[in-house]
Each structure stands twice: as C-alpha cells, then as structure tokens.
C-alpha cells in the first residue's frame, strides 16, 4: 500500500500503439472528464487511488480518537453536542471513502485489516495527543483547515466516486473548521488560563498542520504523476502557501500568535515567507515514532476485536433470515 506507483506516462510515444480503452482513458483525462468504476484504467492509476482513498478513509477513522477523547468532558452541553456531531461526521466520511475505494476492487475488510496490521498509513497528524480542551479548537481550525485546502481541489479529482465523496465531505469540513475557530475565539475572549490554554494548543498543532500538505515539492515522489492524472491539482507547497495565507488574518482576529518567528509578508512574492519545517519530526512520526501511534492503532484494533462477535451475530442472523424467506417461498 505504501509503494510509490510505477511511473506511467500517459502521453503516447511514437513506438507505442495504444489499445482503444487506453486511448479512451487518455482522452477522458485530457478532456478533464471523469473516470467511472467500469471504465478501463491503468493498473497504476487504480493502485494510486486505492492507496490515496484508503489512507484518507483511515485518517477519518483514526481522526475520531483525539476528538472523541473530549466528548465526555466537553465543558458545556452545546459544545458536547457539536463535538459529538463532528466526530460522528468523521465516521460518515470514513464510510463514504471506504465505499469509494471499494469501487476499485478492494473490500472494507481488506482495508481494515491493513490498518490494524500497521501496514496502511493515515495522516500523521492524528498521532499527536489532545491533552486540553483547546485542542478541540486547534484541531478544527488548523487540522480541518489544512484538510479543506487539500480536499477542495479533490472534488474535481478525475475518479468520479472519489470526487463525489469529496464534495459531500468538504461541505461538512467547513463547518468543522468554523466550530474549531469558535472554540478558540471563546477561549481567547475568556480568562487568562483559557487564553494560555489556547495559545499553548496552537503552538503544538501549527507545525504538524503545515506538515499535512506533505513533503516539499522537490521531495514528493508521487505528486507529478497524480497531477498528470488529474487526481491532484495543486502542488504540496502551493497548498501550504495558500493555507498560511488564510491563517494569518484569522490568527489576528483570534489574537493568537502563530509560532513561527520567520513568518512575514513578502511584498515581492505576494505571499508569506515562512520558517523551515522540521521534516525530521515529520519522518519520525511517519515511521511510527510519534507520541500516540501505538495508542491510536491499539484503540482501532480493540474496537475491531471486541466487535467481532457482534458482526458475526449480525451476519448469522441475516443468513438465518434469508434461509427462512427461501423456506417460506418454497413452501
């Protein structure tokens, strides 16, 4: 699942004679149209999508944990309801995305097994813990904010089921980001302790959120091919730049300081200059040496294992009901 796709050049070379399906695929991509499940597609395109969509689904599912951590302790009933709704949305996003991946010939069980076995990846950001309530604000504002920047262009991804799932997901993500912003705003308008809680949380989540866009463009092995296939529309660095441009004025409204002393407006470039991202930390977390990798997978595995007898019961009951129906029909 983590192997980079085989480089595949969609431009026909003089030496290659394309099959009609291949030609049709290339024409669809060239016309910026959608590829649908029954269309022919290159194996590498399929693999890339399976990897990307399943990783995205896993991220939604693992992403339920750092926020789920505060549902029982939310400090007001209104916040409790909103947080519960948000985490529930994430389960829904995971479902749409698993369904989209299933149209490419993989089952939900296979994807779940790969996740639990530690063979599949999910967004590294969820390997950070959420020790304070302010983290519910930062996750919404920074993590969901970064996700929106990444995901809005995916609504136009060339693979139909993925693009359509993303449309629905993006609608809900914008609500998630706003509720995160509101949590932080409320804290920044509150007591000194609340303000400190908010600033501390922003300090912890800012850099990992910037890392969510992936490595710099000159170190991103899969990006070029994904862009040729119209899966990816903007480069990692472009999206990161756009995100920071969006954050700065919002941070001013909040009254929080973004923890980058080198962050300043560059008139010439028409964009913000930013400090160096610690890619060593990024790779460490990716390699399983983050603060919460083991705990996240353990929770997922426990839920899956503890639920096995329930799923088996549901399947057995469905079989018995079906058999009963057949019996009645025969009689």
């Amino acid at each position: 699942m983590t192997t980079p796709p085989v480089p595949y050049d969609i431009a026909p070379s003089a030496a290659t004679v394309l099959s009609p399906e291949e030609q049709q695929f290339n024409d669809l991509i060239a016309a910026d149209s959608r590829i649908e499940p029954r269309d022919w597609m290159p194996e590498a395109y399929r693999k890339t999508l399976v990897r990307q969509i399943s990783q995205h689904a896993h991220s939604e599912i693992i992403g339920m944990q750092p926020e789920g951590n505060w549902i029982t302790r939310a400090p007001s009933l209104k916040r409790k309801a909103i947080l519960l709704a948000k985490v529930q949305d994430e389960a829904g996003h995971g479902l749409y995305l698993y369904s989209a991946a299933q149209t490419l010939g993989i089952t939900r069980d296979e994807m779940t097994d790969a996740l639990i076995a530690g063979k599949a990846r999910y967004s590294s950001i969820f390997n950070y813990p959420s020790p304070t309530w302010a983290d519910m604000g930062s996750i919404g504002w920074l993590v969901d904010g970064a996700a929106i920047c990444n995901q809005v262009p995916l609504c136009r991804a060339s693979y139909g089921p993925y693009g359509r799932a993303m449309v629905r997901i993006c609608k809900e993500e914008s609500f998630h980001q706003r509720q995160g912003f509101e949590i932080l705003l409320e804290l920044m308008n509150g007591t000194d302790e609340q303000k400190a809680m908010a600033q501390d949380s922003v300090n912890r989540w800012y850099w990992p959120a910037l890392q969510m866009f992936g490595p710099p463009d000159d170190d991103s092995p899969n990006s070029a091919q994904s862009m040729k296939w119209n899966i990816k529309r903007f480069s990692n660095d472009e999206l990161r730049q756009r995100f920071v441009g969006m954050l700065v004025p919002q941070a001013e409204v909040l009254g929080v300081t973004l923890p980058d002393p080198d962050l300043r407006w560059n008139e010439e470039k028409g964009a913000y200059d930013m400090g160096e991202i610690d890619w060593t930390e990024f790779h460490e977390v990716l390699q399983g040496r983050g603060p919460a990798n083991a705990r996240r997978l353990q929770r997922r595995r426990d839920a899956h294992e503890n639920g096995r007898w329930v799923r088996e019961a549901a399947a057995a009951y469905a079989r018995k009901q079906a058999a009963k129906l057949t019996e009645t029909a025969v009689a």
């Binding site: 339920m64 789920g68 549902i71 519960l84 985490v87 529930q88 479902l95 839920a303 639920g307 096995r308």
Partner: peptide
C-alpha cells in the same frame, strides 16, 4: 458518547452517536 470510535462497526459508531 463513549462508544464513538469504539463501536463494533462504523455504522454503529454513527447510530449510537445519533
């Protein structure tokens, strides 16, 4: 609310959450 992210299947995370 405790069940969210711990249910036997995703559909139940959603149902119990609802």
């Amino acid at each position: 609310g405790w069940w969210i992210s711990r249910a036997p299947e995703l559909e139940e995370d959603i149902a119990l959450g609802n």
